[in-house]
Computed example of a mutant assay.
Amino acid sequence: MRAPIGPFDNAVPAPDCLAELVAPVAGAVAGWSGDVPAEQILYVDTDPAIADTGAFVAHYGQDLLGRSANCVVVAARRGGGTTLAACLVPSGGRVDVNGAVRRHLGARKVSFAPMETAVELTGMEYGGITPVGLPDDWPLLVDPAVVGMPHVLVGSGRRRGKLIAPGPLFAQLPGAELVEGLSL
């Protein structure tokens, strides 16, 4: 099947290729019960050597920059506690960590979570973290621009492969909260 965005001729409904996904992502896809059917979550195989946004769009097409989103894990500190959260913003922007994220989470300080922490707690590969399959108790802050996209390309949980899903799906993920001004 041809993907609705990008030059991908071999898009496969994610429920049909759970073995290609890391366990938390496969579990989220298999247990999906949102309004968007799980079959509309597509998996496309991509080169893991060019998983980072700049290299990815240089290879697969610059137009994907406006049709993709990045998911980053942040650590919000307040008092003696730390809260982990994920942020999903259009790939052409950056997460407003010190403004929108800090205010929304009521934190004194917010920083990007250490790579080891993000990898260990998500069960995903660094550079492929996706909002699909994150720990259920984490807030998932989503830029409304992502939800407004007809289709969005995001990580698959590992550096090889990407997921493509309708934008509205991302507002239905566990812990999802729409945050205006999340992206700079």
Rank of each mutant, 00 (worst) to 15 (best):
M1Q: 12
R2H: 15
R2D: 14
P4D: 11
P4A: 08
P4F: 03
I5G: 04
G6A: 01
F8P: 05
F8I: 09
F8E: 03
F8M: 11
D9S: 15
N10L: 14
A11E: 02
V12Q: 13
V12W: 06
P13Q: 02
A14L: 05
A14G: 01
D16N: 14
E20M: 14
L21F: 03
V22E: 12
P24R: 02
P24N: 06
V25W: 00
A26T: 08
A28E: 13
V29D: 08
A30T: 09
G31W: 04
G31C: 09
G31D: 10
G31N: 11
W32N: 00
G34L: 00
D35N: 14
V36C: 03
P37E: 04
P37Y: 03
E39T: 13
D45P: 00
D47Y: 12
D47I: 11
D47K: 06
P48Q: 10
I50D: 13
I50G: 08
I50T: 14
A51Q: 07
A51P: 11
T53F: 08
A55V: 00
A55P: 06
F56S: 07
V57I: 13
V57R: 05
A58M: 07
D63R: 14
D63S: 15
D63N: 13
G66W: 09
G66N: 13
N70E: 11
C71K: 02
V72Q: 10
V74H: 12
A75K: 08
A76Q: 02
R78P: 01
R78L: 12
G79I: 03
T83K: 13
A85C: 12
A85T: 00
C87E: 08
G93T: 15
R94C: 11
V95N: 05
D96F: 00
V97R: 09
N98I: 01
A100I: 09
A100C: 02
A100D: 04
A100W: 07
V101M: 03
R102A: 02
R103Q: 14
H104R: 13
L105R: 03
G106D: 03
A107H: 11
R108S: 15
K109Y: 01
V110T: 05
S111Q: 13
F112Y: 15
F112K: 09
E116C: 01
T117F: 06
T117A: 12
A118M: 07
E120Q: 15
L121N: 07
L121Y: 04
M124A: 00
M124I: 13
G127D: 12
T130C: 11
P131C: 09
L134D: 08
L134K: 07
P135T: 10
P135C: 04
D136N: 14
D137F: 03
P139E: 10
P139F: 05
L140A: 05
L140C: 09
L140K: 11
L141M: 07
L141R: 10
V142F: 06
V142D: 05
V146D: 05
G148C: 12
M149N: 06
M149G: 08
H151G: 03
H151Q: 11
L153G: 02
G155T: 01
G157T: 09
G157W: 02
R160C: 02
K162G: 05
L163S: 09
L163Y: 10
P166H: 05
L169M: 12
F170K: 00
F170N: 04
A171L: 05
L173R: 01
P174K: 10
G175Y: 00
G175A: 08
A176L: 08
L178K: 10
L182R: 08
S183N: 12
L184Y: 13
L184G: 15
